[in-house]
Design a protein around this nucleic acid. Sequence first.
DNA 1: AGCCAGGAAGAAT
DNA 2: ATTCTTCATGGC
Length: 279
Amino acid sequence: MPSGNARLFFILERFFIPQTPTFDLKQTLDCGQVFRYVESDGVFDLKAGGERAIFTKTDSGWQVDCTDVGFFQKYLDFDTKYDIIQSKVQDKGLVSSAIEHGKGVHILRQDLVETVFSFIISQNNHIPRIKAIIERICDALGEDKGDYKAFPTVEALASKDADWYASIGAGYRAEYLSLTAKRFRDEGVPNFQSMDTDTARATLLSYKGIGRKVADCVLLFGLGRMDVFPTDTWIVKIFKDEYPKVPAEKLAKVLVERFGEHSGYVQQWLFYYKREKKV
DNA sequence: AGCCAGGAAGAAT
DNA sequence: ATTCTTCATGGC
């Protein structure tokens, strides 16, 4: 990929990410929050919304060749003081261990619509297959940017029926994707940003195919709400001894009460730790 | 060969 | 208000 950079004409801008203790690109991408990227020989190729970035390791951090520097600096969340948050939530136990393992994870500021569709697809699914389905949707419906495709517009997503989404391998989620796209087109995308977290969640839950877990992922990754604790099968496993027989939806509420305004960060550190180390 | 995946809907209890 | 069943698909 590095030798091919010169021939990728979409690259318009470049910036550098210095090496710091609280940012690790691989951890940030591999922790399960984002799907449209590939790694090859240590080079990361990431697409987000209509943008693209190539990350190449340097002696002092990362060189980023991308379509929009401002977009990716915001996307990668360099304004948040992760060192302060990490020191606040230390518990000398599981959370501290998870932070020690994943202290370089940032919560990405992803596009709302892309997050909605990505996490509808994610339900009861494997990550490699989630990536493949999203890629096929972008290939077919996304604006051609030359060397890559953008994530499709609502209009493009709504132009296809459930049978088409089934044909590209979405499985039983095909109907959810089609219905959601058409609602976004016909009713407009709700102004979630103006809503408090509970109202935004309730609105998300009104879409067929979005339950508590997907809604909380959208709130966290697509709306930057940290007062949520997406509770999937792995989180349930982590807390099954401490909270026996508590169903995921109720556990999500318990954990938000416990971790408060930093819930989203803690959730991601714990999730990544559990997935990697399987403790 | 089955088992299961960053769950959710609908039915049954 | 809780628990059970079913839902496509394919990587492992």
